[in-house]
Simulated scan of single mutants.
Amino acid sequence: MELEVRHLRALCAIAEAGSLRKAARQLGMSQPSLTTQLRRIENALGAELFARERTGCRPTPLGHSVLSRARPLVDGMATLVAETRAAADLAGGPRLRIGSTASRALGGWLRRLRGRLPGTDISLHMDVSAAVLLRMVAAGRLDVAFVHEVEGCPLSVPEGLERRVLVEREPQFVSMARDHPAAASPVVALADLAGDRWVVDPTVDGEWDGLRRVLVAAGINPAVLHGDYLTAATLIAVGEAVAPCQPTSGPRDDMAIRPLRDDPLAVRLQLFSRPGTAPAGGERPAGIRSLVDEVYADLEAAYREAALRAVGYRQWLTHHKSPWLHAPAA
């Protein structure tokens, strides 16, 4: 077996994710397929590259040596592909490539951008992993990325990216069945949920670590289910679990959304770009705001729209006298 770039990319993904499951999701493949691929790579080299542990995968000394040589090759290939695509884009008209983790502001953001940039092909790439999106921006495969960073779990940001903070600390609410006893209160304490199972998606960067830190600090040790939030919604609606959620979450007849007392869970919302970002295949006329200024302005307006549309979050913002209640002066 000869090692190819895709094999090296898989090794780098496993090392960065720390587990085969997370790496497989980032690579868009199943965990069994990635496990088989790793076994073939190790068989070809005649040694283990990762030590399989209960908490994940850790590079062996030989693994570290291989990774030190693999990363420059993978990064170089990503740069080559990005530069080739950028050159091809020059003849195809301007494009704006957006990456984002999940957000209720996305619809309003895209609507505003299409009105602001007529004739620009605007694409959206969604991923649960902020780290994956940031690497895509650094490699030139995305122009901007809107991501969340779980409090206490800082993101690994590639060198050279520019950061704009949209919300320094967005509180995370909790979702529960509409008939949950705690739903009768406008604000819920973590202690009121100590007997519930919590659902968390461990493939979302920092999500499980951030929740675990908060639960430990509250002195509770509830049962935890690992799964995606689409499945979680079904479990929550029938009273089988509760879960953290964005404060902009919309209402449902079978589910209640409530803020947590003292806001122990929070994320930072940020927009990342490369210096001098312009639409692929387009140029910015002199004397006007940069593209990122315009993209950020539309994101800010879309987020405010989503925040004020969510009744519970609007009440939270009012209670805290948040500046998000008022649009900035033109």
Rank of each mutant, 00 (worst) to 15 (best):
V5W: 09
A13R: 04
G18L: 07
S19K: 05
L20Q: 15
L27Q: 01
L27T: 08
M29G: 02
M29P: 02
S33R: 14
L38N: 02
L38Y: 04
R39Y: 10
I41Y: 06
I41N: 05
A44Q: 12
L49F: 12
A51Y: 00
R52N: 11
R52E: 12
T55G: 08
R58I: 06
H64E: 15
V66H: 04
A70E: 01
D75V: 12
T79E: 14
L80G: 07
D89M: 10
P94C: 01
R95G: 12
S100M: 04
S100G: 02
G107D: 14
R111K: 13
R111S: 15
R114E: 15
G119F: 12
G119A: 11
D121F: 09
I122N: 03
M126E: 13
D127Q: 08
V128C: 09
L133R: 04
M136T: 07
A138M: 08
D143T: 03
V144M: 07
V144I: 06
H148C: 12
E151H: 14
P154D: 13
V157R: 07
L161C: 11
R163L: 13
V165D: 09
V167T: 13
R169Y: 07
V174D: 05
D179M: 08
A184Y: 05
S185C: 13
L190G: 02
L190S: 04
D192F: 00
D192V: 02
L193Y: 02
R197Y: 09
W198L: 00
V200Q: 09
P202W: 05
P202T: 01
D205M: 04
D205T: 12
D205R: 04
G210C: 03
V216F: 07
A217N: 03
G219V: 02
P222D: 03
A223D: 14
V224Y: 01
D228E: 13
D228W: 05
Y229M: 15
Y229I: 15
L230E: 14
L235Q: 12
I236H: 00
G239D: 11
P244K: 02
P247L: 12
T248F: 01
G250I: 06
P259V: 03
L265P: 03
Q270T: 13
P275N: 10
T277H: 05
A280S: 11
E283G: 10
R284S: 10
L291Q: 01
A297I: 06
A297F: 06
L299I: 08
E300G: 07
E300K: 08
A302Q: 06
L308P: 11
G312K: 09
W316V: 03
L317C: 09
S322I: 05
L325E: 12
L325I: 10
L325D: 11
A327R: 15
A327E: 14
A327D: 13
